[in-house]
């Protein structure tokens, strides 16, 4: 592959910006319901209009995740989905869809492999970027260095609770994009539009033009359109994972995701 992950990510954000919209980035836990079928589900979502993906690496103690993604992670771990298996899923998604893929994980599996080695593995799987849910900017330096070395993108988090000092240190750390937490809480579906996205975006924009990706609590096309109005990307996680966990068959899961993602794709395109 000639293009680095960092470059593919930059092109993604530049591309949607040129179209005057935000990228739709659905999340699914790798290996749900099986590694092979999860690849098929990502392919179906690409065909339905997703711009890229977040592939979840299952973790036994996911502090940032609500019950649905927790349950998906437990199921994947029982099915033997290790970091290597999850990265193989991610690699196949890249190869099959030609879309940029982010992986989401927690600190400990990365440490176990070794920070540098993890980022090398990510790069060689063709993955574009890494999101680590329990990595605040204060602890991020070795991860930022390793990501740069491997030419892979890395996100840093900003939440509605983040104060100005922390926000400054996030943007000054030059992440590939900011993962802006739209709701105070763990991942999960919400009933209303986020009341935080506009203010968060303007606080970040006042300091930097780093791409902003909203996640947490974005469940419906309406929510996605609302968040997309102020961001460069929107992650929809629990609403996708729940449909897969609830489906009675692979065909049903595929149909449900095709419908959901095509509605979300329309929503992010009509948001501005």
């Amino acid at each position: 592959m000639t293009e680095s992950g960092q470059q593919r990510l930059a092109e993604l954000f530049a591309g949607v910006k040129a179209e005057g919209r935000a990228a739709l980035l659905p999340y699914l836990t790798a290996g749900i319901p099986t590694p092979e079928q999860s690849v098929e589900l990502f392919v179906a979502m690409a065909e339905a209009g997703a711009d890229g993906f977040e592939v979840g690496i299952p973790y036994a103690d996911p502090l940032m995740d609500g019950p649905v993604i927790m349950r998906a992670g437990e199921q994947a771990l029982r099915n033997g989905v290790t970091v290597d298996v999850a990265l193989r899923v991610a690699q196949q998604v890249v190869e099959r869809t030609a879309k940029p893929v982010l992986v989401m994980t927690y600190v400990n599996p990365v440490l176990r492999i070794g920070i540098d080695r993890f980022f090398e593995k990510v790069a060689s799987a063709g993955v574009s970027g890494v999101i680590i849910a329990d990595l605040p900017v204060d602890e991020a330096l070795p991860y930022l260095v390793a990501a740069k070395q491997a030419q892979v993108g890395i996100a840093l988090f900003v939440a509605p609770t983040t104060d100005r000092t922390r926000l400054v240190s996030v943007v000054e750390s030059n992440p590939s994009f900011v993962y802006a937490v739209a709701e105070i809480g763990v991942t999960g579906e919400r009933s209303a539009n986020s009341a935080n996205t506009r203010a968060l975006a303007s606080r970040i924009r006042a300091l930097s033009d780093v791409p902003i990706v909203f996640g947490v609590g974005i469940s419906t096309p309406e929510h996605a359109a609302h968040a997309a109005a102020d961001g460069d990307g929107v992650i929809v996680g629990t609403a996708i994972v729940r449909r897969v966990l609830e489906a009675q068959s692979h065909e049903e899961a595929k149909a449900a995701l095709t419908l959901a993602v095509s509605e979300l794709a329309v929503a992010v395109r009509r948001s501005r």
Binding site: A133, D134, L135, P136, D138, F157, A159, T161, T162, V181
Partner: peptide
């Protein structure tokens, strides 16, 4: 030690 926590908690 250290603090490996979601950003939402860090200010608290």
């Amino acid at each position: 030690g250290g603090a490996f926590a979601p950003e939402t908690l860090m200010p608290a």
